[in-house]
């Protein structure tokens, strides 16, 4: 319910944890001491109003930015000081809020780059085929990304994150700019990935999408974890509704 962030569960079942994670920009606290834990194989949504620190949280988890204080632990190992590429090698990857696809490369090679870390070059065409089919982009392999529609690029961005074959996948607004059907399809993909064992954190604004995922949900507010619980409880919480209506 509307309780403050729950206490950390026993380590070992947790794949990713943060302890007292803090980030300030020029004196402004974007995150103020977030204790968060992701269970192995868990699907977890993070919601919160604009400027609550959600994207900052992902940047810190990924290693794009350094925390001002606090710790990030992946599978019991302190990764706070690791570079982004080192974290990626351990099995964490992200889909950024802005899509960050390779505009000047064909779709095929957008997937080739993440896939090449785990696959031999000659296996890749088959994997690409499968990934593209998953995100309804079959047959676009030769297309240059700049010729794709916005929605298609969003799909591709998701497929690229999946292609990195991470253990922990951070999805920052995967459905931004998508139609209702596309959103539903994305939810299917996320749930399937999770079913296959990937631990996933999703940042979203789209409540329908989160309802679809029906997972553990945390609310980030003013850079702190405000509430945590099953989505239906969170949705019912008066305080959370107040945050979104801005009357706190």
């Amino acid at each position: 319910m509307g309780a403050p962030a729950t206490k950390l569960a026993v380590a070992g079942t947790m794949i990713l944890e943060t302890r007292g994670l803090m980030k300030t920009y020029g004196g402004v606290a974007a995150l103020q001491g977030v204790d968060f834990a992701l269970k192995t194989g868990e699907l977890h949504c993070i919601i919160g109003p604009n400027g609550a620190g959600k994207s900052t949280f992902f940047k810190l988890l990924m290693g794009i930015e350094r925390p001002s204080a606090g710790q990030i632990v992946f599978k019991g190992r302190d990764i706070t000081r690791l570079q982004a590429h080192e974290r990626a090698r351990l099995g964490i990857t992200v889909k950024f809020q802005s899509m960050r696809v390779y505009q000047d490369l064909p779709v095929y090679h957008n997937l080739f780059i993440p896939l090449r870390r785990h696959h031999r070059a000659r296996e890749i065409p088959a994997v690409v085929e499968r990934l593209l089919a998953d995100v309804h982009l079959s047959g676009t392999g030769e297309e240059y990304v700049r010729n794709l529609s916005h929605g298609q690029q969003q799909w591709l961005a998701i497929a690229m994150a999946v292609a990195a074959e991470p253990e922990v996948l951070l999805l920052d607004e995967p459905t931004a700019g998508m139609s209702a059907e596309e959103t539903t399809a994305t939810a299917r993909i996320v749930k399937r990935l999770n079913g296959q064992g990937t631990s996933i954190i999703v940042i979203e604004h789209d409540m329908a999408f989160i309802r679809d995922l029906d997972s553990m949900t945390s609310v980030l507010h003013y850079g702190a974890l405000f509430a945590q619980g099953a989505f239906k409880d969170i949705e019912a919480s008066v305080e959370v509704q107040r945050i979104y209506l801005g009357t706190l």
Binding site: H85, Y102, L105, R117
Partner: peptide, 19 residues
Amino acid sequence: FLLVGVREEPERTETFGYD
């Protein structure tokens, strides 16, 4: 392709595990 990846989206390329 990694070279072009670095040119186009350095941060993205990094988060795929490339230095």
